[in-house]
Every structure is written in structure tokens, then in C-alpha cells.
Design a protein around this nucleic acid. Structure first.
Lengths: 249, 249
DNA sequence: AGGCATGACTGGTCTAGTCCAGACCTTAAC
DNA sequence: GTTAAGGTCTGGACTAGACCAGTCATGCCT
């Protein structure tokens, strides 16, 4: 059997357990702290040399460790050990910045852009809109300890929030809507599913096109149900743990 | 540019957009119904021949379509077009069978086994147990239209449910606990995160070891908070959409 | 009629590379 | 001090296979 940390006793050839063996060694190094959270792993080519394996096989091993949530990659920058997951409680009074601080993390928000757009079909469906309705869209990237983990597209009806784009949009939208427009959320409806992150979103999250993510699509309703807006949140799939309490029906 | 459905006009060589082009063609065939839900795709080798590409590249393309939730694979059986996702509402009064029927699907449940075991660390943490506490574990596989999409490990304290293993365990545990033991759930705490499915669970779900899944870990509390049990639910990642309504704090 | 063996087909694993394109660092010039 | 260019390093994309192991259907034998 494979000695932990030893690259030499691993057999080669088709279906010989190399993948499993090398994966186990790398997992061991992460577990025992030889590779620490946030730090970059040796490059794929270096690991290939060490384990005397091909880049395709080594790459597949890293992808499986990534699926496990143990490591993450930044496109053309390297593979890194994943920190513990951010705990996302949809019921929390606090917003992202507050929750992150409470969890001992350093939150950050960057506004990518703001524009009046025709929203994608999923947003029209969520908000029950006609085909030509335009919305205000604010795109932001959230980070934890300087690592981009969340890309958000926020959509709302511009007429309901006149002058919205004149405000500082890096703050909590919840607080902005309450303080400036007197708009209070009454309830939120969440849809959660694994998906792929593509296009510009992938770039902002520093992943390659088609990488796995967790999509949280949220529709926010005002207390009187007259006003709705929504958020499409694409979370790096290794970076988030959602916790929800539910009363039995 | 690539003619939709045409495999011949795709360039070859490193980073030439073959992947993107072939992916786009296959996505188009799924969207326009040439490949229909539940049906098997042509094999990897057949698609390699058609698109004149290598199995590694073709495989990567399929994996990206899988990440998108468009197709799924069964280990050594083929790739299939994904049906629409099962909508999982944790707040629903109904249980899996009822929800599935309401969504026009044919639910199924198979009991894999039942045993008294030392639970894994995650379960001990969820239930706040000591290191040697044994629990009753019931393992089941749920299917929709004869497709296995969910592997569940249910854990509870055997002393609270004497004679549990003598019952039909393919029914709703919620109903069984209420009817036989007078045990009513008061609230449930959910933890949701993407993960990898491994070991026997992978086999039951017909995926290879290390495949992506959505883990829903649920702790069920009785009304008087005296009794707790929990479920580890591993969902095929393309097969589930979680919907939750939340009142603002 | 049922069970077992065999063959064909499936995806998984593995090799040994090449080429592409973005990221980042260093150096030089203005 | 800033900007640009060049070089090195990174992962992504791609090739043309080979070999492994599980799945399933078919045929034969009891």
C-alpha cells in the first residue's frame, strides 16, 4: 500500500489506482497542514515530476480534490488550499459584511458596474415580468480575506428607486433601500442549485468558463408585497455553507 | 464560425476553441430536442469520431455540460440528458413521495440496509454526541422515474425508537415516527453545500467515486426539543432545486 | 426456465507530450 | 515614478492512443 507522503510506491498504467493513491497523499498533506489554507500548492508540472505522472492524470486528481471542497483554483494562477466555508444564513438580520466580520473574516465588496438592461429570462421569470421590461442591474463581487467568492447580479425596477445609481453601491442594498427609500423586506424566496459559472462572472471569480458554482437566486418582497427585486448569487462552490432553520409545517 | 450541428468546420490544436465549439453544438442538440430528456447520448467514442477529436477533449466537454446541469452520467453505462430538476421544498408538509407525485414524477424508495453503527464525525457534531455513542442508521436510495437521484443516511437514537427495524422503512420516516412513536417534528435545521459523493454512496447513485453532489444535512428536532435525529442527503447535483421561503428577521 | 459464461460496449484511468493564452514579475526607458 | 515590453510560469486546451473494470445482452447448458 501507499506510504503516506511517499510518491515512489505508486504503480503506473491504466486503472492501477494511481489516481486514488496520489489523491490520498495530497489529501493527507492538506489534512496534516503541510499545505495550509489559502496557500498555493506546488504547480501541476511540479507535482507531475514528483509523482511521475501525466498532467492529464494530475489535473483530474486536483479536480476531484476541488469537488471535495479541499482546494480551489484560480485560472492560470494556481491551485490553493480552501479556507473553511463562509456560513450563509439567509435568515440572518445581518448582511454579507456583517456576517463575514462576525465569522472572523475580512469582507470586501467591489462594484463592477451599474446599468439599465433587459434582464435574462431567469430574472423575468422570477419577477414575473413581460419580455421588454427593463431593469436596473448592479453587478458586484464579494470577497473574503481578499479572495473573490461571490458574484452577484442585483435587479430592481428603476422607477421604484429613483436616483439609485447616484448612491454608494458597495454597501448593503438592504440598508440602502430602507434608509433612502423606506423600503422594508417582508420575506425572501430562495432557489438554490448547483450550476456552472460562465462568461464575465467566471472572470470576476477568477475561474475558467464552465466551472462549478452554487447559484442562489433570491426574490425579495416588500412587506406589502407591492415591490419585488432579485439577486442572482453565484458562489464559488467550495466557499459557502448555507444554514437554514425551518419550522415544521 | 461553427455551423450549428456541423462537426466539420471546427479547428484543431491547442486552445483553438474546439471545446467551446463542440460544446455549443451539443448544447444546441439538447435545446432543440434532438437529444431528449432521459435518453442516452451517443457514446464518447461515437462523438469522438463525429467531431474528430480526442476522448480526453470530448470527455472534458461532457463534464462541462454536466456541470451546467444539462446532462448526467451513469458510471460505465453512458451519458444521458437530464430531466428537469426535482423541486425540494424543505418547508413542504409532504415528504419525498408526495412531493414527487405532486410534480408529476414517479417516486421510488429502496432500503439499502439498517444497522446500529458508530456514526461519522459530521453526524456526531450535528447531534452533539460523545465519541462512542452508537446510533441506528437506515440507508435508502430515492429515485424519480426509475433514476436514482438521492442517497440518504438517516441516524437516530435507537432507544428512542424501540423496534424501529421491525417496520417497513421504505415509507416516510416522518409519518412512521408520528404514527408509531407519537414523535412530532417541531423544527428542522438544514445545512446545504456542494460536496463530492464517494464510496458506496457513489455506487448507489451510479456515479463514479468523487462525483459532485449537493449535500443536505438535516437535523430534526421534536416539538419539546428533547429528541433529535438527522439525515445526510446526497443529491445528484443536476437533479435538485431547493426552494425556501424566509421571513425577514 | 434459470443460471452462468462470454463478448461487446460503456466510461474510468493513464501516458507523454504539444500548443495556447493569461498572470505576474522584472527590467529598461522615458 | 510610471509605463511598456519581455520572459517565465501558470492552468487550459488538445492529441492519439492504451489499458482497466463494470454493465448488459445474448447464447448455451443444465
Amino acid at each position: 500500500m501507499i506510504e503516506s507522503g511517499n510518491a515512489e510506491s505508486i504503480r503506473r498504467g491504466g486503472g492501477t489506482g494511481r489516481l486514488k493513491a496520489i489523491k490520498s497523499v495530497l489529501r493527507g498533506r492538506i489534512d496534516d497542514g503541510e499545505y495550509t489554507a489559502g496557500k498555493r500548492l506546488p504547480s501541476e508540472r511540479q507535482l507531475c515530476d514528483e509523482f511521475e505522472t501525466s498532467r492529464v492524470t494530475l489535473h483530474e486528481i486536483l479536480i476531484q480534490l476541488e469537488t471535495d471542497g479541499l482546494i480551489y483554483r484560480e485560472d492560470r494562477r494556481g491551485w490553493f488550499v480552501s479556507p473553511t466555508r463562509f456560513v450563509y444564513n439567509p435568515q440572518s438580520r445581518g448582511h454579507f459584511q456583517m456576517s463575514a466580520s462576525e465569522q472572523g473574516r475580512k469582507p470586501g465588496t467591489v462594484v463592477i458596474d451599474k446599468a439599465i438592461v433587459v434582464p435574462p429570462p431567469i430574472v423575468r421569470e422570477l419577477l414575473d415580468l413581460g419580455p421588454d421590461q427593463e431593469l436596473a442591474r448592479i453587478r458586484r463581487v464579494r470577497s473574503i480575506n481578499e479572495r473573490s467568492i461571490l458574484y452577484v447580479e442585483h435587479y430592481c425596477i428603476p422607477e421604484v428607486f429613483p436616483g439609485l445609481f447616484d448612491h454608494d453601491l458597495s454597501v448593503s442594498m438592504t440598508e440602502l433601500y430602507r434608509e433612502v427609500y423606506g423600503f422594508h423586506y417582508g420575506r425572501m424566496k430562495y432557489r438554490i442549485m448547483p450550476t456552472a459559472v460562465t462568461g464575465e462572472a467566471a472572470g470576476f471569480l477568477r475561474v475558467s468558463n464552465g466551472s462549478p458554482a452554487l447559484l442562489v437566486a433570491r426574490v425579495n418582497h416588500s412587506i406589502d408585497e407591492r415591490v419585488r427585486d432579485c439577486d442572482l448569487e453565484y458562489w464559488r462552490h467550495d466557499a459557502v455553507l448555507i444554514e437554514v432553520d425551518v419550522e415544521a409545517g
